[in-house]
Amino acid sequence: MKGKEIIIVFRSTHDAIKAKNLLGKEGIPFEVIPTPKEISAECGISLKIEEPLKSQALQILKSWKVRYRDDLL
């Protein structure tokens, strides 16, 4: 991945996996990364996506009620 990227942080591992599956199904590229310590110590895994895909990705997560940390974006 190149260009600006964002990290989506989740409350529960359940939501991180749910998000990963949903984005995968919708063909949005992502990378699973350990949640960076300086961001938060929410659940252990986070998703990194390209900035231009942010609104599309969040739209999907919202419609499936995935609990991510909006305040950390």
Binding site: S12, T13, V32, I33, P34, T35, G44, I45
Partner: peptide, 9 residues
């Protein structure tokens, strides 16, 4: 949920 490595994932 305890780590992000492949096995934990």
């Amino acid at each position: 949920g305890r780590s992000a490595h492949q096995a934990a994932l």
